[in-house]
Each structure stands twice: as C-alpha cells, then as structure tokens.
Design a protein around this nucleic acid. Structure first.
Length: 196
DNA sequence: TGAACGATTTCCT
DNA sequence: GGAAATCGTTCAA
C-alpha cells in the first residue's frame, strides 16, 4: 500500500492504522518525533461532533481537501490541536492526534513543555502533543508526505488496541471512535463532556 | 452586535 | 472534584 493510499479512507477506518505511526517535527531547534498512541476519528458532515458537520468554512477548509494534510485548529482560546486529513478530496474525514510517545528529541520536547514534565506526559493530550512538536497555525494545511517541516510515516502496529467514546465531545458522546494503545502510559485520561 | 460554547490544560482545595 | 485562563467560531436576535 502506498503512502497516499494509507490515508485515503474514512476517518474511523484509518484511525487505528495511525497508532504506532511516527510524526516528526523538524525546526531549526532540532527534531522531535512521537509514535502515536491515541487518536480520534471525525467523519465529516454526518458526524455531529465534527467541525465539518455544518459544511465547509474558512476554519475547516483543509478537512475537505485531499488526504495526508494536517488540519490545525485553535481551541479554548489557548491551545492548538492537530488532525491528519483522511478520505478522498472533497470529503471531510479527519483523525485527531491526541497523544504519542516521544521517541526522539526528549530534551527539546521538555524545553517546550516544561522542566517538570515527565517523559510519558510530554505528548499526552492533543494540546500537549502540538506543543511538544511546536505545531501551530502556520502548519494548517501542510502536506505530511513531502518530507517537510512535519511528516508522518507508518510505524510498528501496537500489540493491543482499545476502542471507546471520544473525549470531551458534547454531540454524539457515545460514538466509539477513539482508539488507543492498550495500557500505554502516554495515553490521556478519558473525560466525558458535562453537556453530554 | 452580542452571548454562549468549545475535539483543553493546569492549578487549587 | 472544581474552576480559571482566554479567544475564535457559531448561532440567535
């Protein structure tokens, strides 16, 4: 299977294959790489929890584009979250990158996250992951397959994968489209939305 | 034009 | 367990 084919499917189908994949950030500061341990799927106009549910807007435009690009959005007035766009051009599936294990560049990641943050927590949680990798607004729409500042490649498939409801969503709170590596210490805690 | 809300994190009790 | 921080997007009027 080619790199492009890898991501050319519905979010919920592609999401489990992203576990173990390695996301690499290269800046003039250095390189940080994480092996993904937790992801969530959002599947376009039919998914009430998706940013694309109400159709295309300036914010979610990248979701409607071709697969293999990064959709970055600003959350709670202070955090950045990153998704891998999946599905063919014109559809709006995406997979939120919720957590990962830092496999390269621990020092730089800790410099970005804070000196008191332990290894397992460096990229635990979607906003922590983007912070460890220095992902921000400027990366919205970037191609992850061209070996640029950010890239993703398949990794070793984990031995065990768990499935459950997505974290913090108020709509469709029981849809089990969250996937994580069973028992992994770098996976974030589950919290149900108070509104759900 | 305004108000509510959010795919969160961190700190406090 | 609970609340604050903080602002772009969305929805109502």
């Amino acid at each position: 299977m080619s790199w492009a084919d890898w991501l050319n499917g519905r979010g919920p189908d592609v999401a489990p294959s992203l576990l173990g994949a390695v996301l690499t950030s290269r800046t003039d500061q250095g390189r940080v790489a994480v092996a993904l341990t937790e992801v969530e799927a959002y599947d376009g106009p039919d998914d009430p929890a998706s940013h694309a549910w109400r159709g295309p807007t300036p914010r979610n435009a990248v979701m409607f584009g071709p697969p293999g690009r990064l959709y970055v959005y600003f959350s709670y007035g202070m955090h950045w979250c990153a998704n891998v766009v999946t599905g063919p051009d014109g559809t709006a599936s995406a997979v939120l990158l919720r957590a990962g294990r830092v496999v390269h560049g621990h020092g730089l990641a800790r410099q970005r996250r804070g000196p008191r943050v332990g290894d397992p927590a460096l990229a635990r949680g979607p906003a922590c992951l983007t912070r460890a990798l220095a992902i921000g607004r400027e990366h919205d729409g970037i191609d992850l397959g061209s070996g640029g500042e950010l890239s993703i490649e398949p990794g070793a498939r984990p031995l065990g994968v768990s499935v459950g409801p997505r974290v913090g969503v108020s709509r469709a709170p029981d849809v089990a489209w969250r996937f994580w590596v069973t028992g992994d210490e770098t996976v974030s805690a589950y919290r149900r939305s108070p509104r759900a």
